[in-house]
Each structure stands twice: as structure tokens, then as C-alpha cells.
Design a protein around this nucleic acid. Structure first.
Length: 438
RNA sequence: GUGCCUGUAGCAUAGUUGGCCUAAUGCGCCGGGUUGUGGUUCCGGAGAUCGUGGGUUCGAAUCCCAUCAGGCACCCCA
């Protein structure tokens, strides 16, 4: 039996052309979040399984975690997300950190799931978190940073929407207005989360069935439906309009508008899956009809650091996955051409490999990235190879060039070539490199 | 984890009421058209046990079972 060349189910190989896309995405992310003062951290890919159990106590979560028992009988997990890890790290140094702490990371994460488009078993996810800020400024900064990343990818505002909601508002609604008990509230949250997957009649019927007779005497089901259909906070019914969480939402949205973010909206049906969110949540949606899906999101989760037995620390953050982001960029044709880093492909003419060594050295010392064709094939074959590799320049070196120290630099895109000494050739190459970066 | 769909050379496809299939076509790939220059054209060539394993049959790419991988929905939503 021969070995398969396929990568492990739900995981990807990154061939150089794929890796270039990844590098482009990651470097763009890094550039933006570092502009906001975030510092990069990292951590082991393995964690004790317990830190995921503690988070929610949810059995189902554990079924999607890759886990094993190590030789010392420890239960170990491959991290499925970064938030527990970063909370652990902050908890570990809570007393010595200089708050507000602004950290980011781009970890590789795994979950045991059945793969589909945009949902693999493995992905990379930018995690951006701010610790130690209670106020709405933290939520605002996080959303602004997420938006700035989209802008850095040259996304137009019409291409995506930022939906915003408040978990506190939802809790108030469920508990104080609808008088739901905790179990009912959890069911309701799940129901609202799936609202857009059902038709309206089915949804209202299911919601209606959730209420006990005494819970609907005050028109609670009607109040809920009115609430869910609201488009702006101004339309919220009754006293909810002036609830503290709503006033906070209002401040947040005013700040966003002031910062030039116009494509956000209040969405009372936005829940987000994770139980650990405590207040503001947001989610960015692709508006493209072919790819109309949730891309990424985040929010406030003040309780997680406290799970490590220390004083809770106010936290807001978001995670942005590479798979959905790449889908977005491809759908909207936002990926630029990404040729290899190699500046020039050296075409040797005749038996000059040995004699040309000092020249290679000169070019490389001056910072030029050279790939040498050592095959001894005819020049036309060597040129074809350079073109196939998508390298911009071919550098010809033969007896003649070595004698007079003038080298032929051919632009493979335009087909023109020029003869110059090392210095001039290097500056031509670097000029092009600079131009390309812009 | 549940249901449904798909799987033919590197890629895209044809062929699927079982037998003219010793599997075809396009692109790509390799070599050549006289010795230092590509992307056109011409000529030639390599490359597939039809995802894998098993079964039915005189005979299977075509039917059945299993398995692997991908896709869609559910679940779940990093």
C-alpha cells in the first residue's frame, strides 16, 4: 500500500504560493494591531484539558477538542481557541502587568469537527485582547481595530457589516421583562441565535411554546417579538430604551460613527455562541450574496481571568480566523498578486558556475535575493523556469559578463534587458522591490 | 456525530442501460526545430491499475458493500 499524499483530514498544506497569501494576511494584521499598541505573545499549542472544561462545563465543547492522556496520565488538549490560554497567562502575572494590557497572537488552533467550506479542523486566528479597562472605550477600541484590519485589506464599507448587541441587555430582557428562569433563558438565547435559519412562523411558534402560561399574561411573547424586530436602539420598547446597557450601546455607536465607521448596526438577534461573553458582543458579516456569512467577532468577557482563582479582570477582545478571512478576500477579489520574494533568477551561460561564485556573493551581500539555475540547460529553458516561478528578473552571467563585470538584467514582464555593473544592477532591483511594496 | 451528494492523468472534463476502454480531449509537463534569451507556432514524448479495499459477473471506470477524502444541510459555531 502506498502512502497518501493528502494532508490530514480537515487540515491544509501550505505550498509556497499558499504560504505567501498567509504571510500577506498575517503581516497586514500585525501592522494594524501594532498601530494600536498591541504586543505579540505566544504559548504552547498544548494545554491542560481542564482549562476548557472550566470555561463552560459544557460536555459538547470537549467533544470537539483534540485531547489525549500523556505518559504521566495528564489530560492534554490541543488548543481549540486562544482565549482561555491568554486568560491563563494574564492571571499568572496579574500583579506585575502594566494595565491596560494590549496583547495579540496568531495561533494555530484545532477542533475535532466534520469539515466544510470555511470550517476546517485547523485554522489560524488573530486574537486581539485588551485587559484591565472597564469602560466602553475598550469595546470601542477592539471594534475599531477589527474594522481597521478590514480597511487595511482594502475592503469597502459596503462589503461587510458590523453587528452589535449587548448581553447585559439580553439578560435584562430575559430575566426582568420576560421573567424567564435561567434554563429558559439559555434555551431562548440558543433559539434567537438560530432565528435566521428558521422561517418566521416556526420561530414564533417555538418561542411561544417556551413561555409558561403565567409568563405570558403581561404580553411577554409580544414584547419579545417587538424587541427582536427593532432596527435601532431608539426603537426599543418601554423602559428598555433607557436601560444602562442601552445607554452604553448608544455611547459605543456614537464613538464608532465619530471614528468614521459607518457600516455598523444594532442587532438584537446577535447572540454569539460562547457563554463567557458578559456585555457588548459584535460580529462582522460579509455582505456578498455568494458568501453572506458571519466572518468573525468578539466582545467583552470579564469573567475568564477570574476562573484561575484570582480577582477578575475586565477584558474585551476578538478573534479573526484565516479561513473565513481568505474566503472574504477571494470573494471580493481583494488579494493582490503575491510573487515570491526572490529578486532575480540567475541564468548561467556556459561552464561558469565556479567562476561566478564571487559575483553571487557580491549581489547577496548587497541584499539581493538570488536563485541560481544550476542545471546547465540552454538559456531559453532557464528563462522559462524563471517565468514559471513568477520571478521578476533574470540575471544572465556568462564568460563575457565575468570578463567585463557587466551583467545583463532582463525584466521578464516587459522583455527588456540592460547591461550594468553590480551596483547599478542592484539599485535597479531594489527600486523595483520598493515600488512593488506600495 | 446524523442525513444527502461527489471522487477518472498535475488541473479541467468525456466516458456511467457492464463488453468496440489495450480509458479519450484540452490545458499543463518533458524533449526537439544547430551552438547566449522565454511567453506564438511546428514535431515528438512521458503521465491514470478510473480515490482505496473487497464482492457480483465469462467480463466493471460503469452494479453492490466497506473505507478514505471533499462538498451541502443538521449539530456546533474557534
Amino acid at each position: 500500500m502506498s502512502l497518501s499524499t493528502q494532508p490530514y483530514k480537515g487540515a491544509r498544506d501550505f505550498y509556497p504560493e499558499d504560504k505567501r497569501i498567509q504571510k500577506y494576511m498575517f503581516s497586514t494584521m500585525r501592522k494594524v494591531v501594532e498601530k494600536f499598541g498591541y504586543e505579540e505573545y505566544d504559548a504552547p499549542i498544548l494545554e491542560p484539558l481542564d482549562i476548557y472544561r472550566a470555561k463552560t462545563g459544557d460536555e459538547i465543547v470537549n467533544e470537539q477538542v483534540y485531547s489525549f492522556v500523556d505518559r504521566g496520565d495528564r489530560e492534554v488538549a490541543i488548543r481549540p481557541e486562544m482565549t482561555p490560554t491568554v486568560s491563563r497567562m494574564v492571571a499568572g502575572r496579574r500583579q506585575e502587568l502594566a494595565y491596560p494590557v494590549r496583547w495579540y497572537s496568531i495561533p494555530n488552533l484545532w477542533r475535532y469537527e466534520r469539515p466544510q467550506r470555511g470550517r476546517l479542523r485547523e485554522h489560524w486566528q488573530l486574537n486581539v485582547d485588551i485587559f484591565g479597562v472597564n469602560g466602553i472605550e475598550a469595546d470601542h477600541e477592539i471594534i475599531t481595530a477589527a474594522d481597521s484590519i478590514m480597511q487595511a485589506f482594502k475592503a469597502k464599507r459596503s462589503m461587510y457589516t458590523i453587528k452589535i448587541n449587548s448581553r447585559q441587555l439580553m439578560n435584562t430582557l430575559f430575566t426582568d421583562y420576560l421573567k424567564l428562569d435561567p434554563t429558559q433563558a439559555a434555551t431562548m438565547a440558543g433559539l434567537i441565535d438560530r432565528m435566521h435559519k428558521m422561517d418566521y412562523a416556526e420561530f414564533t411558534a417555538t418561542v411561544d411554546a417556551l413561555f409558561q402560561p403565567h409568563q405570558r399574561e403581561g404580553g411577554e411573547p409580544e414584547l419579545l417579538m417587538e424587541f427582536l424586530n427593532v432596527k435601532t436602539v431608539n426603537d426599543l420598547p418601554g423602559e428598555l430604551r433607557v436601560h444602562p446597557s442601552v445607554l452604553e450601546l448608544q455611547v459605543l455607536m456614537d464613538l464608532l460613527a465619530k471614528a468614521g465607521v459607518t457600516n455598523f448596526e444594532f442587532d438584537p438577534t446577535l447572540m454569539r455562541g460562547f457563554a463567557y461573553y458578559t456585555d457588548i458582543v459584535f460580529e462582522v458579516f460579509d455582505t456578498h450574496p455568494e458568501n453572506n456569512r458571519s466572518m468573525f467577532g468578539g466582545g467583552r468577557y470579564d469573567g475568564l481571568v477570574g476562573l484561575f482563582g484570582v480577582e477578575p479582570i475586565a477584558t474585551a477582545g476578538f478573534g479573526m480566523g484565516d479561513v473565513t478571512l481568505q474566503n472574504f478576500l477571494e470573494t471580493h477579489e481583494l488579494l493582490p498578486p503575491l510573487p515570491p520574494e526572490t529578486d532575480a533568477y540567475v541564468i548561467l551561460i556556459g561552464d561558469v558556475y565556479e567562476g561566478a561564485q564571487p559575483v553571487f556573493r557580491q549581489f547577496r551581500d548587497l541584499g539581493v535575493k538570488l536563485a541560481i539555475d544550476t542545471t546547465g540547460r540552454k538559456p531559453d529553458k532557464q528563462i522559462k523556469t524563471a517565468v514559471k516561478k513568477n520571478i521578476h528578473y533574470a540575471l544572465f552571467i556568462g564568460e563575457k559578463e565575468l570578463d567585463d563585470e557587466q551583467y545583463v538584467l532582463k525584466n521578464l514582464m516587459t522583455g527588456t534587458d540592460e547591461r550594468h555593473g553590480v551596483e547599478r544592477t542592484v539599485s535597479l532591483i531594489k527600486d523595483y522591490r520598493r515600488k512593488k511594496k506600495k
